[in-house]
Amino acid sequence: MPYEKFLEQLGQKVEDIFAGFGYVTILFLKVLANLFQGKMSVKLTLEQMVKIGVESLPLALTTSAFVGMVFAMQIAGEFTKFGAGKFVGGVMAIAMARELGPAITGIVVAARVAAAITAEIGTMKVTEQIDALQALGATVEKYLVIPRFIATTIMLPLLTVLTILTGFWGSYLVAVYIIKINPTQYLDNAQYMLRTWDIWCGLIKTAFFGMIIAIIACYRGLNTKGGAKGVGEATTSSVVTTLIALFIVNYFLSVLFFK
């Protein structure tokens, strides 16, 4: 019966997703408990912050510059047709601060950093380095998860400030020099329409993205099974899972903040 097999596999998948959700939640609570007891290493956390910045910055800035440029081209092009060119600056500023900047940073870090975290921890798992760590009396939470958790939670908003700025200036260049919108008007309108609150909400969203990325990536790494192939599979699945989680969480946070 092909249907039965299909349903069985689907059921298994759904079951796995719920089990995974449960484990991720447990890991998250453990991390919080450890943090409240002050169990963290400043040195390891700083190392991770530097690593995350270096890994993500070039890609995040390039991506946001071009996304800003292409959006300006589309929006400014259409808006000027209706004589609404003076609103482009504000629309771009709001779009960048509320959604595009956070999304670009989230996606870039999920792709680069979640993959790196899962691959590193997964390799440690299959080569028994995780066992060795525990045998020596260290805990996985303090040594591996918390430094990454804090680093992504702090670094995402910082990176997002830069992606928002870069994306906005990208849009400015295209709107002003190619579509020929008045530069003063562009900046004035941006200043008029964008509230500080928009920027804060965008940044707070990315702090949540950072937590999600670290927890899912660490969880995937720690549950890697079966050699190099297992590490590859865990890494791919880690990126896919974090991306899906980011988009879903982003929607609900946006509804909460901006509606």
Binding site: M124, T127, E128, Q129, D131, A132, L133, Q134, A135, L136, G137, T139
Partner: peptide
């Protein structure tokens, strides 16, 4: 952790960091 500190384990695969 206290117990593990009293015990030294030599791994079959060495498992160095």
């Amino acid at each position: 952790i206290g117990l593990r500190k009293k015990i030294g384990m030599i791994f079959q695969t060495s498992a160095l960091f």
